[in-house]
Amino acid sequence: MGRFLQALLTAVVLVGIFSTGASAAYMRQPESDIDPSVFKLDEKHLLGQKLDKSYRFSDLEGKEFSLGDLYGKPTILVLSYYTCDGACSVINNDLLDLLVLLEEAENITIGKDFNVLTLSFDENDTLETLTEFKNNLRLPKDIKDHWTFAVAPDFTHLQALTKSLGYKYFWSPQDRTFYHPGAFIFLTPKGRVSRVLYALANEAKDIELAVLESKQGQFKVSEIVNYAASLCYSYNYKEGRYTYNIPLFVAVGSLTLGVITFSGSVVFFGRRRKKRLMEGS
């Protein structure tokens, strides 16, 4: 449990600390107040949950789109809010770092293999706060084009969405900040939840594996290497990340052993018989 809970706690605490900024006067010990498990989505019951494609949001340009428009490839959904000074949004920054690493690794590409969507759950967010927020993130160009930041013109849509996810968040007037789960929610091309990872607990590899998993076995022939590599890992609910699928390696090793014993005995004794017959004649 250790590493994962620690990361979760750190995420929650950091979200709190950074959003309160310098106003240390209000700082209390959030650890003592907040049970981090409140901010853990009930993944076991969430998996397979379908997000209604008719929810409508509007993006940076004020253009409205429905959630279903993003479907067709895996989507990483991040719930956040935009009104915070400077250092805000550990989650988005963490995701950005991971995405940059993914771009460098070149196994999967944002835009081609998956989309990213950040939604605000703060009713007071507007296109202005959004623009400022996005500018502060300083996204590289290729990532910028495929990472949608949006607000909900009709806030009931957002409420319905968070309710169907069981996503709990609340405003703390004391800390002047939102407390909320720092979760990356992975959606399948059909808009079902396939995995939930938490900010600051993961490496780029985990994001890649979660995206591949979201494809649910629908991959092109050219992606077979990625797919095969993804079989070497399986998701560890307890640690909240992907770990090596050890039995698979053991099995491949055993199979190799069997094949070697088989071909070894065939080749060795085949030769010996030939030799014996030649000597005999």
Partner: peptide, 20 residues
């Protein structure tokens, strides 16, 4: 926890190996 999904195991892998 080789086959325990709660701790990173793969619950289906045993079946695959068994029938393999």
């Amino acid at each position: 926890h080789f086959f325990d999904p709660a701790e990173g195991g793969d619950v289906l892998l045993y079946q695959n190996l068994f029938w393999f």
